[in-house]
Design a protein around this nucleic acid. Structure first.
Lengths: 336, 336
DNA sequence: CTGAAAGCGCTAACAT
DNA sequence: ATGTTAGCGCTTTCAG
């Protein structure tokens, strides 16, 4: 049996307007009538239809989230942060991972151009003009996560990869006096990776170290990349006394390679990573790495998005969340 | 500027009905008029409003997914499977993790009782009568993931934990002739855990092994649980020659404990796990475990849900996905 | 504090 | 093949 607002109105003897007011927030309804209506509604098992409400109010209480292909604990953390904050603020979350470029754009258009969501959170590996155009046309607010500098005048929440990388390399230099510090990089087209590389260069430069090209190897952020990078870096006459590996996933590969090669960490070579992923705590020796507040990234993005929606503020805004050095023993520090 | 179906109709010289038909699937529209309308629509940047469409069609092209507190790679995989299948079938996915019991029920009511989604996928640690009642009242189809046997006559997709556990313990018995096989269990109120324990008992029983209570320890599916369980199991005079650890997470803890205690795996004691989580491949020695098709669980659930929605079929259905033994060296098998 | 009625933007009979 | 029109279920002026 269909039970809509009319039914409740009829049975309670009030108008639909009054029933509606009962379910809207601070509307003026006499407390006694409110009770009556609520009672009837409960008996009838009435729940306001959110779609009808959305159509009428022109807002859906829903935010759209677009992520790169959903995988790994990074995305888990992001979703976790987003979901948590959205729940606190009584919003629903539609997630979509971009399985392909085409799908990505379609989804973006759908979210930005239609009434399905009130706002969107977008994390994409690369933002091109196509995206820029879509966004320009749209009336929905959007906040980016970890976007690079391609787009100007956007709202963007990101991680301070640069500082994090600088800090951990600085640690190797200042605390341990390592002279020959190698680097296994991330993908060349990855914004995070690029920033981390910059931080590495900066630290070496500032402290007067030479850049030794033989000690700088390409990588891919995957376990295998770290494995191969680690093996390769020892093939040169120049041997590193420490290696900054651009993420923990690759560091795991490096640990494996070290084990196979009989290389002791940190005895023969110090190793540090980046990300402080969950697995990292199980590496022996405990890896020195950079903690990245991923979950925060999600929750703050949601929080800010909702703020924009309320205030209709449209100003560009960038927030760069700080990272934190996590000291283990892989860098040569002693266990305490 | 607001651009709705009326606007497109007016500018193209056709009625809203015809414009609507252009956007509905196989409706009869002359190809030439379709082109004209599409052209105008494109110029105007028109996108049909999905909310209005939903209200009119009484369906949203969206499915709701409720998961236990979002965490760990298990949930990542589930979401991945769900998202992928939903995308293929042109559906949107609203996710909600149940941060609390109250939130869980609220969300369930919202999804089941209102028009926000067309169907729901539910995974919950425990299904009580409250849940049963909500579901009974609702008209939306629902499919469960990994539900226990509390509810009868539901659609349920689950993992064959029982067989998986039986198989891996059988492997220890048949291939390795271990006599004293210990168990570190999962939480007592966890359905998966219970099934795995059953499989363990069954294997011992069938092959005429004695159940040795000292070798059966409680656990919690967390790293720490495995760590402590492993240490504890060696405190008894009865020493196991093999241990079945009810999930890989705990196995990681056990590896750590073994390292600290100077216990060699599998030399001093064989160890096997369950789940085949991503991390497992990095354990040395490679752990023997049971692969669980989690992502499939998600995609099949979605697929079946959509099937139900189309056919309006309402029959109970249970699908139990098989697991697969993954042989490493931790059980005593040789590397090949 | 409550009611009447005009939408919100689209779909789906029913006509033509 | 296309147009007319009555909803879909709720919100929100505008009156009273």
């Amino acid at each position: 049996m269909k039970v809509d607002i009319k039914e409740v109105a009829k049975r309670s003897g009030y108008s639909t307007a009054t029933v509606s007011r009962v379910y809207s927030n601070g509307e003026a309804v006499k407390s006694s009538t409110k009770q009556k209506i609520l009672k009837i509604a409960d008996e009838l098992n009435y729940i306001p239809n959110p779609i009808a409400r959305s159509l009428s109010k022109q807002s859906t209480d829903t935010i759209g989230v677009i992520l790169p292909d959903l995988f790994g604990e990074f995305f888990m953390d992001i979703i976790h942060g987003i979901d948590e904050e959205a729940y606190k603020q009584n919003r629903f979350v539609i997630v979509s991972s971009s399985h392909s470029k085409r799908n990505f754009l379609e989804t973006l258009v759908e979210f930005m151009g239609s009434g399905r969501v009130d706002g969107v959170i977008l994390m994409a590996s690369q933002i091109d003009e196509m995206v820029a155009k879509i966004i320009k046309k749209s009336k929905r607010p959007i906040v980016f996560i970890n976007a690079g500098d391609e787009l100007k005048n956007i709202v963007n929440f990101k991680i301070n990869n640069y500082e994090g990388a600088f800090g951990i390399v600085e640690h190797l230099i200042l605390e341990h006096k390592y002279k020959k510090i190698g680097l296994i990089k991330g993908p060349d087209d990855n914004y995070d990776a690029i920033e981390r590389t910059k931080g590495y260069y900066k630290a070496l430069t500032i402290y007067g170290h030479n850049i030794i090209p033989d000690l700088i190897l390409p990588g891919n952020f995957l376990v295998e990349g770290g494995y191969e990078g680690f093996k390769k870096i020892f093939r040169h006459k120049q041997r590193p006394d420490a290696i900054f590996i651009a993420n923990d996933m690759m560091a795991i590969g490096a640990y494996q390679a070290a084990e196979e090669m009989g290389v002791n960490i940190p005895g023969d070579v110090a190793v540090v990573g980046f990300d402080d992923i969950y697995l990292s705590q199980f590496l022996i020796p405990r890896i020195t790495t950079v903690h990245v507040p991923i979950s925060d990234l999600g929750s703050r993005a949601v929080n800010y998005l909702l703020k924009i929606m309320q205030s209709k503020n449209n100003k560009p805004y960038v927030e760069i969340l700080p990272t934190k050095l996590v000291v283990g023993e892989s860098c040569g520090c002693k266990k305490i």
